[in-house]
Design a protein around this nucleic acid. Sequence first.
DNA 1: GGAATGATGTACT
DNA 2: GTACATCATTCCG
Length: 201
Amino acid sequence: MSRPRAWRRLGQEFFERDARALAPALLGTILASGSGPRFCAGRIVECEAYLSEGDPASHSFRGRTPRNAAMFARAGTAYVYAIYGMHLCFNVVSGARGVGEAVLVRALEPLIGLEWMRARRTVERERDLCRGPARLVEALAIERAHDGSSLLRGPLSLWSDGTRIAPRDIATAPRIGITRAAERELRFALRGSPWLSRPVR
DNA sequence: GGAATGATGTACT
DNA sequence: GTACATCATTCCG
């Protein structure tokens, strides 16, 4: 299966807002990788905002470094980084160019290319295919080489299939796995989705 | 140069 | 719930 014709690729203007606004807007949109028969896609059901100002949990908090350089690029750039020595995480850069903020994508509802996802990940339960930031990266074959690539033109892409998420269907919660600014509610999730990395209230 | 840390996942109790 | 695998990156001296 390949990409449905009705999908529309998200444009520059979609990404050009601060991370706190972009994160809930990303819910319901579709992240895709690969092409031809290897096309893979999943709907974003959970993500977290990492801000440019006053957010000690953000990689950009102490300024620009070689690792986080992509965070300071144009909105709509992919930021891919390694964590815990063995995993990668995928972010969507947001905001004005150079401010250093991004949205971490934490879980997808698998839509297309499930056979490829299963080939890359050995899971007992279908629901574990893309349930977690490092899991979805593996399922979609996202690599370090994708760091800094454009989501408007590059090998990874973001789409809308017309799905609109009502505000009441978006739950907010504290971000997961961080030690600083742990109380801030910058995690956004599709309420009731069975695909979340962890349930939300 | 060295130590500490981490936006995690898996296996096991 | 807890243990731990495993290493890039950062920060400090």
